[in-house]
């Protein structure tokens, strides 16, 4: 769109009529999102903040109980357990997804003509419904007949009881989560393709080896994408729900009646408190605690990113 930019005047800048008209159009186009955000996000969030200070079963009017829900939250061993499981999962899942995705993206970059095909292949699992992924991995992780343990058996390893041994339930879930890393791969591939070739040539001339080129050229120039995926994957991991709920807590005909403390994730516990036990006030407090945790982690990550992330064109 053509714009007319007037020379900056001393003191306060005056916008031209065209700029003001453009601004109005911009707000108009943004309006659906703003309305959606206020109605479906901000409004419910404020209401749930209020509910977190009440005893509320969804059916009867809420009763104000002060900080009781938060006190109960801190004393509930199941909350601590589910939070611990979720953090453990996140700590394993995020670095693994980033490392494997980067490795795959680097390989894909070298593929050449078939890159489009492999890009599609790696992205396809992302399109698999989460419930189907849960069911699929219940079968793949089967101790006696699952493909994973059969593969391990070929190299002489007696595979663990992925779905029943409390020590192996979370690693099994992490394994399942790697099924859907296609989005991260595609982001990294796009970032890698934007790294200027002349920088590699210059590094070559300086005698840099493969590792040095990767460490000092590739990583800095894709650090923006690395940071983005770190944030997004961390938040998604802390909100893990559907696949695990399907595997361990869903329909008894499909998931079996067995579930394990080891598979108790924070959002699953929240969901049970809200909709199965009708403790909506307590669940609201849980939701706000998770919100604060995610906020703190994200702020820390953003602060750290100032030291490690390079944005093209920025002055440092």
């Amino acid at each position: 769109m053509a714009t007319t930019v007037s020379a900056p005047a001393p003191g306060r800048r005056r916008r031209t009529p065209l700029a003001r008209r453009e601004a109005r159009w911009a707000y108009l186009f943004l309006a659906p999102w703003i309305v959606g955000f206020l109605v479906f996000q901000a409004g419910p969030m404020i209401a749930s903040a209020w509910l977190s200070f009440t005893e509320y079963d969804v059916i009867n009017p809420p009763e104000y109980t002060g900080l009781d829900n938060y006190r109960e939250l801190m004393a509930d061993p199941q909350v601590a357990r589910s939070l611990g499981n979720t953090v453990y999962y996140t700590t394993l899942h995020v670095p693994l997804v980033m490392a494997i995705s980067l490795g795959l993206a680097l390989l894909l970059k070298r593929v050449g003509r078939l890159q489009g095909f492999f890009r599609t292949v790696f992205y396809l699992p992302v399109m698999t419904p989460a419930v189907a992924v849960g069911i699929l991995f219940l079968l793949l992780l089967n101790t006696q007949d699952g493909l994973i343990n059969r593969a391990l058996g070929l190299v002489g390893i007696d595979g663990p009881s992925w779905t029943t041994d409390p020590d192996w339930v979370l690693p099994g879930i992490v394994l399942m989560s790697l099924w859907s890393l296609g989005s991260t791969v595609i982001i990294y591939l796009a970032a890698l393709q934007n790294v200027p070739r002349d920088l590699y040539e210059a590094a070559d001339l300086d005698g840099a080896g493969a590792w040095a080129r990767f460490r000092h050229v590739t990583v800095p120039l894709i650090s923006g994408s690395l940071f983005f995926t770190l944030i997004v994957n961390t938040i998604a991991s802390l909100q893990m729900f559907t696949e695990v709920y399907t595997m361990y807590f869903g329909n008894r005909q499909t998931a079996g009646s067995f579930n394990s403390d080891a598979a108790s994730f924070y959002v699953i516990h929240l969901f049970q408190e809200a909709f199965q036990f009708l403790h909506m006030g307590f669940a609201s407090a849980m939701a706000w605690l998770l919100f604060v945790i995610i906020l703190v982690i994200t702020v820390v990550q953003v602060r750290l990113s100032n030291r490690f992330v390079y944005y093209e064109g920025e002055e440092r």
């Binding site: 419910p44 404020i46 749930s48 809420p62 729900f241 924070y266 969901f271 909506m280 939701a287 706000w288």
Partner: peptide, 17 residues
């Protein structure tokens, strides 16, 4: 307000349920 609050619990913690 109660209905929106109900949505809020999931908005905060789960998306798309």
């Amino acid at each position: 307000l109660r209905v929106t609050a109900l949505a809020g619990v999931l908005t905060l913690a789960i998306s798309g349920c």
